[in-house]
Write a protein that binds this DNA or RNA. Structure first.
Length: 416
RNA sequence: GUGCCCAUAGCUCAACUGGUUAGAGCACUGGUCUGUGGAACCAGGGGUUGUGGGUUCAAGUCCCAUUGGGCACCCCA
């Protein structure tokens, strides 16, 4: 019987796992540099947690829902923010503020997999809660910029597109577009880039906008200047102070689908747009904690997944080479030297060196080949003649040089 | 959830319009080389052609279903 993996799930063989760890390490390191702490939560929640505020389609069509044995409606987390909000609301008073948290949960969404989209993925989330000023946005985006740079992406290789939903609402008001039509109009704005111009017009006509309103809206969306809109103006001043203004640009067509965003929204994109989706998405969600029964608490967050970031790196030829690496491989001439080899390996490990011991009683020839494939920097060859002098051969596998070393000096010889 | 494309050894691919025991390169194992690795040469193992049905004298090749992968839509990380 041959069983294939479940659609859209991920197998991480060691080669791939090294990459995942590399990615997670970068996220953790940078987040901690800014004083953010890692947290985690359960990967199942009551469905109601999402029903409240996530997007309708996300909950109704893309969430894995099941009934527990007790008959409760449960959901496998399709995003992390509601869990974060629930946890914060539950201990709101005792938590030190502002709250700087990050997490890398495993997320599930029931969608048709395609490039940059699986059903199972890891999603780095960073959130800053308790800061009303737009300085929060600047700090969170600054972390994001540093992570991208830690991953090897420089200026011009990614761009953070920023907007503010209130700016859009303002725009609708100026164009005298009925506020009741906001959701429908936002939806079209959100995908204006993907729609053909005619489709954009027709869709808005269907919503009930006049030809003049559509033309005015269309040209306003091309305007890459937010004028004197206060929130955006001071946000750009902060970007300047944080030294990240080279990485951001204003884009009035950024809306975001999730319902809980208020004010600032942002997305990270591949500037070549070869990958025609946002790599990251986030924004301000000032009302989510209250809607889950907490006291008012402003919040800003952003998230990206291992799948999209991999696509981004691959697209730009930036996937790192991460070969297997250990410090030493212990080989031995014959079974007679094995006991000594075991002891040497144990000693090396005690001194913190990653040491693989040859475990098959095969020829030296094979052992050296294995040593080479193990990714070891050094091969330790335990052989009778040298052993009589209290020495072993130490072979630098990269430089192909070999010397005989006293057992007592072995640890020192491998440090360089 | 809708439409379309794809599926042959661990990997990348072959196999004329359906026609004899499904091939190659790389990788792997062994040998040339029983105290020393990445080269070369030689040899070898490994596929009931994703799975299950059907058509046919005959199917990797045609049909149906199913599973997985990909692209667009949808949505979104």
């Amino acid at each position: 019987m041959k069983i294939q993996p479940v659609q859209g799930t991920r197998d991480f063989y060691p080669d791939k796992m090294r990459w995942r760890n590399w990615l997670f390490d970068a996220c953790r390191q940078v987040s901690q540099l800014y004083g953010y702490e890692e947290f985690d939560g359960p990967f199942v929640e009551y469905l109601d947690l999402y029903a409240a505020k996530s997007g309708e389609e996300l909950v109704n069509e893309q969430t894995y829902i099941f009934e527990s044995r007790g008959g409760e409606k449960l959901a496998i987390r399709p995003e992390m923010t509601p869990t974060l909000a629930r946890m914060v609301a539950a201990r709101q008073n005792e938590l030190r503020k502002p709250i700087r948290w990050f997490t890398i949960p495993n997320i599930w969404r029931y969608e048709r997999p395609q490039r940059g989209r699986k059903r199972e993925f890891y999603q780095y989330n960073i959130d800053l809660l308790g800061v009303e000023s737009i300085e929060a946005e600047a700090e969170v985006l600054s972390v994001v910029v540093d992570i991208m740079r830690a991953l090897g992406l420089e200026k011009g290789e990614f761009v953070i597109r920023v907007n503010n939903r209130y700016y859009l609402e303002d725009l609708l008001r100026k164009l005298e577009i009925d506020i009741d039509k906001k959701d429908a109009v936002f939806r079209e704005i959100d995908r204006v880039e993907k729609l053909k111009p005619e489709a954009f017009r027709t869709n808005l006509e269907t919503v009930g906008l006049s030809a003049d309103q559509i033309t005015a809206l269309d040209s306003a969306l091309r305007q890459k200047n937010f004028g004197d809109f206060p929130a955006l103006k001071s946000l750009w001043e902060k970007f300047e102070q944080y030294g990240i203004s080279d990485y951001v640009e204003f884009d009035p067509s950024i809306v975001r689908g999730l319902l809980y965003y208020t004010g600032t929204v942002f997305e990270v994109w591949d500037p070549t747009k070869k990958f025609n989706r946002a790599i990251m998405g986030g924004g301000r969600y000032d009302n989510l904690i209250t809607s889950l029964g907490g006291q008012p608490l402003p919040a800003v967050g952003i998230a990206f997944s291992d799948v999209t970031i991999e696509e981004m790196l691959a697209q730009q030829g930036k996937m790192p080479e991460l070969p297997r690496e250990i410090d030493a491989y212990v080989a031995y001439y014959s079974a007679g030297e094995k006991a000594t080899a075991i002891k040497i390996a144990a000693d090396l490990r005690k001194s913190g060196l990653r040491t693989e011991l040859n475990i098959l009683d095969n020829s030296l020839d094979k052992q050296l080949k294995a040593a080479n494939n193990s990714g070891a920097r050094y091969a330790i060859i335990v052989a009778p003649d040298e052993l009589q002098r209290g020495e072993v051969n130490v072979k630098n596998l990269r430089q192909r040089e070999q010397k005989s070393v006293k057992l007592a000096d072995l640890g020192e010889a491998l440090k360089g």
